[in-house]
């Protein structure tokens, strides 16, 4: 059974007296453990789809089932609970809290899950270690590089052990070398922990790391492509190290 199922999802926005249709009937299934990239120009509706998949927004019509649950009918607080328990978010601009240490940033989702303080600390430290930031727990975001900040954000997204991670242009603010490092972490999470990954990007290079690429145009999926041989970020990284040596 697909963990994400969309049936003819439509999303309209009212902007004054103009109604903008951002999604014009999207039907889609994403299986557990799949690494899917969503590509498209800006305004193609890919961010709208991302918001609906991430339970930040509800479809105007159509059905969205997440693990069999119809999300369209849930209220604000139940949606918040689902985001807290099932979904991790990674943003283009990292969205870390300033003047808050890396550790406390990572603790944030657990705060809303009611995890006791000691366990929060332990799990946050473990998540930071998993993204290669052991020893940086008490650094503030402004003391970390862009790549490190995004890794803190990834640690934060996976600390509540979500089944799905939604990444919205996660490499948009990073240089290409750092982008590969970030993609390596995503691929590792996907391969080793079976986390379903949905990645929104407009860079074909980045989409090439995914197993499946959905192309969006004018609020519709125009192409659903299975990637036969995705790029492997870890291999590229080690290759680069060899070249440097």
């Amino acid at each position: 059974m697909a963990t994400i199922e969309l049936e003819n999802v439509v999303k309209r926005y009212c902007m004054g007296d103009v109604t903008v249709t951002a999604l014009r009937g999207v039907s889609l299934g994403i299986a557990q453990g799949e690494f899917t990239a969503i590509m498209g120009a800006s305004g193609s509706g890919k961010s709208t789809l991302m918001n609906i998949l991430g339970c930040l927004d509800r479809p105007s019509s159509g059905i969205y089932r997440l693990d069999g649950e119809r999300v369209g009918e849930l209220d604000r607080d139940r949606l918040a609970e689902i985001r807290n328990q099932k979904i991790g978010f990674v943003f283009q601009s990292f969205n870390l809290l300033a003047r808050t240490s890396a550790l406390e940033n990572v603790e944030l989702p657990m705060l809303y899950a009611g995890v006791p303080a000691e366990e929060r600390r332990r799990r946050a430290a473990a998540a930071l270690q998993a993204v290669g930031l052991a020893g940086r727990e008490h650094h503030y975001p402004n003391q970390l590089s862009g790549g490190q900040q995004q890794r803190v954000a990834i640690a934060r997204s996976l600390v509540n052990r979500p089944r799905i991670i939604m990444a919205d242009e996660p490499t948009g603010a990073l240089d290409s070398a750092t982008s590969i490092e970030v993609m390596a972490i995503f691929q590792k999470l996907n391969r080793e922990q079976g986390i379903t990954l949905v990645l929104v990007t407009h860079e074909p290079d980045i989409a090439a790391y995914a197993d499946r690429v959905l192309h969006f145009r004018d609020g519709r999926i125009v192409q659903d492509e299975r990637v036969a041989a995705p790029r492997v970020a870890a291999r590229e990284l080690s290759g680069r190290e060899e070249a440097a040596a």
Binding site: A80, F89, N95
Partner: peptide, 10 residues
């Protein structure tokens, strides 16, 4: 951000 992390209205 807090809302996306699961902060409820309350």
């Amino acid at each position: 951000l807090r809302q996306s992390m699961g902060a409820k209205t309350g």
